[in-house]
Simulated assay, not measured.
Amino acid sequence: MYTILKKEVLNPTVTRMVIDAPFVAKRAKAGQFIILRVNEEGERIPLTIADSDSEKGTVSIIFQIVGKTTMLLNTLEEGDSLHDFVGPLGKPSEIDGNEKVCIIGGGVGCAIAYPTAKAFHEAGSDVTTIVGFRNKDLVILEDEFKECSDAYYLMSDDGSVGQKGVVTLKLEELIQSGEKFDKVIAIGPIIMMKFVCELTKKYNIPTVVSMNPIMIDGTGMCGGCRLRVGDEIKFACVDGPDFDGHLVDFDEAMSRNRAYMDFEKHEREETCNLLNKEVA
Rank of each mutant, 00 (worst) to 15 (best):
E43Y: 04
F145Q: 12
E147N: 11
I95R: 00
I34E: 00
V139N: 02
L154Q: 07
I34R: 00
L274G: 00
I45D: 05
C110L: 12
L36V: 07
E269K: 14
R134S: 12
G57M: 05
V38A: 04
V9T: 15
K29C: 08
K91R: 14
H266K: 15
K91Q: 11
C197S: 12
E8G: 01
G67P: 06
N257S: 14
G57N: 10
V167M: 13
D137L: 05
E41S: 14
V24W: 02
L227C: 12
T168D: 09
H83E: 15
K234I: 03
D150K: 14
N74H: 09
R258K: 13
I130F: 00
G245P: 09
G105A: 13
V229D: 02
M193W: 00
N135L: 09
R16P: 03
E198L: 15
V101M: 01
Y153S: 01
S177C: 03
A119W: 03
S125D: 06
E94K: 15
C110S: 14
L47H: 01
G224C: 07
T75M: 11
E43P: 08
E172I: 04
D157P: 09
E270S: 10
P46Q: 02
M221D: 05
Y152D: 09
K265C: 05
A113K: 00
D249N: 15
A21R: 04
D53H: 05
M221H: 04
V108Y: 10
E179L: 06
R16I: 02
K26H: 06
V14D: 01
M71Y: 02
I95L: 07
P92G: 08
L5K: 15
F33R: 01
L76Y: 07
F63C: 01
V131L: 05
I65W: 00
V127H: 04
F133S: 04
N74W: 02
I103E: 06
D137C: 02
I49S: 00
K164S: 03
L169I: 06
E55V: 14
V9W: 13
C272L: 14
S160R: 08
M215T: 04
Y153V: 07
A119M: 06
K170G: 00
Y2D: 02
K7M: 10
I191A: 13
E142L: 05
E43G: 10
I65G: 00
L169S: 12
D242F: 11
G67I: 00
Q32C: 13
E173L: 04
E142N: 10
V101N: 00
M192N: 02
G132A: 11
N135W: 05
M215I: 13
L10M: 08
F63I: 01
D262S: 15
G67V: 03
K68Y: 14
I190Y: 13
G87P: 01
G178C: 11
D53L: 04
T58S: 05
E269T: 15
I34G: 03
E232G: 08
K164N: 04
L47D: 02
L36N: 01
I103H: 03
